[in-house]
Design a protein around this nucleic acid. Structure first.
Lengths: 330, 330
DNA sequence: TTGAAAGCGCTAACAC
DNA sequence: GTGTTAGCGCTTTCAA
């Protein structure tokens, strides 16, 4: 059997409480006693049983991470960095894909709470608002990542979507483009800001509004949309993909039509996932600081867990243009 | 406070034991009683506390998944499918990246055991053999995924690496190539089989052995290696990437040298991750049935958890050639 | 068919 | 400084 504090205690000739004290560095324990206990713990390869301490009300050191959408690698990048940071801080990540399905979200949220995860990281496409309200009401430690929820009291950490939209427009303007289209993601909270920022810039310049088409975050859907767009008489000279997956779809559509990038058409993406470096030509993109966002989200969540209570802080990281080879000066 | 079985019991006018019995569908409970209890559980939104039942010795319904290497998307695909299957079977996944670091492996394995995960899924690049021995000794439910460990008693589920190597060679031969090189992954158990299968075919045909170079699974390293390879006088007409990441590196090297694919040089990959569909031209690859492997691994692990004991089964799924546009007939 | 009671491994208040 | 004790929420044997 796996050793318990009692085994350690007996062998060290002390009580379980003392062992517990040395483990948690609490109370006053004599130096000799501590060393002895430590030595025996080591000898017996003792590992405290988290279930027991959780039952007593201590943290589980585990964070539930909802992944909405496996089609878009950006979520995996969020998870990956979150896990990295969580590990540094002594936490584990339970990954839960919900596939934009409110029923799955409910199911998994229930499971995670049963398993006593200390808090949630909620990604941008979370659907089940009723559940969100419930989590808010329970004051379950939670942070929204990659999007804001102004209607809720959650802390949020995200890239500035609105600004990203603006930057996309400005960047394309600076290259001399005026006939520009955008393919945006459907049903995503963060997509909205990206679109609005983008349009805003056209309004400000009193230019005719850009053509906007909607697609799910899949290469094929974006490709289909883009194919349609690029066959028009008055073909845009530049297309902005609301996220990298969409941009890759656009690139494939261009290629299918025999259009070369960036000679015949410029394409830019948004997020700056590793997709950008894999396609050819490499994709110019508005980069969201995914790693920073993940790290900050984990840190904020842990703060909530340790201190209790939300701060209703809204961290907004600025995006930045990463120039590569998919867009050119007109 | 969150309701406990006692709250349910009190409200239903029964004992906690009875509530437990209806939750677990155990023992004999009167039909009326059960319905009443169920109704109250629903009303109070009762969710059993996993920590308590784990403490009593029941399963945690959680699987620890070691991710060795975030650079290669194939591992994320394994995780993704494993999580999908686990969810179907009522399990959660705790994701743990170890970055090929034996120290991290040890740390995380300890953490996961403390947290009472029911078993491990171990990926191909796991380094810490001493730890593996320990896990084996403890008979901790575990399955090796995407590689075999003949020296250990673990169940394993993988694609047939050796056959994949053979298929790569045969496929390239069938296209008329004879001057072929391979860039293989360093320090990976599965890489070995791929290389040996590949070489075997040359031996059988009594051809001169292919040039083999080694690189970490990073695009840049593969690119550097490939650059070197493709500058030689007697440049190969085809290069086989030991995995998709490597193949993408090779493609980039070719492009850098102004070589067009597949006209000047054919490239094929192995694994068939989504990278293959994103690059252009799309990458012909030997596909490993990643999803099947993940599903089977989860199922096997759950079987171990439920039944106890390893079966020492070695599942080997056959690879298959997926023809796309990166290789041509000579 | 149901209930009483002990105990899983750990923590924390309190007593010594 | 160290030990005693009660109890976290649940399961399970045994008795009723």
């Amino acid at each position: 059997m796996k050793p318990t504090i009692y085994d350690i205690a007996k062998k060290a000739g002390v009580s379980a409480a003392t062992v517990s004290n040395v483990i948690n560095e609490r109370g006053r324990v004599g130096d000799k006693t501590r060393k002895k206990v430590l030595a025996i713990m080591d000898e017996l390869q003792y590992r405290p049983n988290t279930a027991a301490s959780v039952l007593k009300g201590k943290a589980a050191f585990t964070i539930g991470f909802f992944v909405p959408d496996m089609l878009n690698p950006v979520y995996m990048e969020y998870v990956k960095h979150a896990e990295e940071r969580a590990q540094e801080r002594g936490f584990s990540i339970m990954m839960c894909s919900t596939e934009n399905d409110p029923v799955k979200e409910r199911l998994q949220a229930d499971v995670l709470r049963q398993k006593n995860v200390d808090g949630f990281i909620i990604t941008s496409k979370f659907q089940n608002e009723e559940l969100l309200r419930e989590i808010e009401r329970e004051q379950y430690p939670s942070v929204c990542i990659a999007h804001e929820r102004p209607d809720f009291q959650f802390d949020s950490v995200s890239g500035n979507d609105w600004e990203a939209g603006i930057m996309a427009a400005d960047y394309l303007f600076s290259l001399g483009h005026t006939n520009i289209a955008m393919i945006a993601e459907k049903d995503s909270v963060s997509s909205y800001g990206r679109i609005e920022g983008f349009k805003e810039r056209f309004r400000k310049k009193e230019m005719k509004q850009p053509l906007i088409r909607y697609a799910e975050a899949s290469i094929d859907q974006a490709k289909a949309m883009a194919l349609n767009l690029l066959k028009q008489d008055d073909r845009p000279t530049a297309v902005f993909g609301g996220n990298d997956v969409l941009a890759v779809g656009i690139m494939q559509a261009a290629r299918t039509l025999g259009l070369s990038i960036p000679e015949d058409i410029s394409v830019i993406g948004l997020d700056d996932t590793f997709l950008c470096q894999i396609v050819s030509p490499q994709l110019t993109a508005i980069a969201m600081p995914v790693k920073k966002i993940s790290y900050r989200a984990v840190d904020l969540l842990i703060e909530q867990i340790e201190k209790g209570g939300t701060l209703k802080s809204t961290d907004l990281f600025p995006p930045v243009v990463i120039e590569r080879d998919s867009a050119r000066k007109l």
